[in-house]
Design a binder for these strands. Structure first.
Length: 174
DNA sequence: TATTTGATTCTT
DNA sequence: AGAATCAAATAT
């Protein structure tokens, strides 16, 4: 079952743990790659100093202000694409960074590595998370017990002051 | 117009 | 500990 766009128009911290165990499907031409989400981080609102939208709307983060269900893709450190799914309603800037994916062959840990293997780039920025765009989420009935879901501090945002300590990174244990 | 800086990862 | 490498944000 393909996740509807409405799935993402809800509180980000509610969606983030639910995304674990959901499948990410990437279609490239005739090929299809899929794997389930093992790790994700929430970036919520203008008050969150770690969130790109914290300093107002800019060219880069404009899609975060759009309604939930679209991709926010951008280049970091000049070499790695970050894949985020925008959440919540229009004019509320929030998104979830996908940090880890487990496919049948391989476990990609690290946002840069998974975007490289899924061939994700700027072309998807602002596109909806539907099969038409070639990248979307599916619920394939994998249910995780709450003991498998762990929380921790977000990574790589030491500039964000006290916000770096928020336990908004969700991941699957083992 | 110039400089700084990352939601990273791999090499030394 | 440092490099790779660049667009956008910030400083000048």
């Amino acid at each position: 079952m393909i996740l509807s766009l409405d799935f993402f128009k809800r509180p980000t911290l509610e969606i983030c743990p639910e995304l674990l165990g959901k499948f990410l499907i990437r279609k490239i031409g005739k090929k299809e790659i899929s794997g389930f989400v093992t790790e994700a981080e929430a970036y919520v609102g203008m008050d969150d100093k770690a969130c790109h939208a914290a300093r107002g709307k800019t060219k880069r983060n404009a899609v975060m202000f759009e309604p939930g269900g679209i991709w926010y893709v951008y280049l970091c450190y000049g070499m790695y694409w970050m894949l985020n799914i925008v959440t919540e309603e229009k004019d509320f800037p929030a998104a979830i960074l996908i940090r880890g994916i487990k496919t049948v062959e391989k476990h990609f840990n690290g946002p840069g590595k998974l975007t490289t293997s899924f061939q994700i780039n700027k072309g998807l920025n602002g596109k909806s998370a539907t099969p038409q765009s070639g990248l979307w989420f599916e619920d394939r009935g994998v249910s995780l017990s709450s003991k498998d879901i762990k929380q921790g501090k977000r990574i790589g945002i030491n500039y964000a002051g006290s916000w770096q300590h928020k336990p908004w990174r969700f991941f699957i244990s083992n």
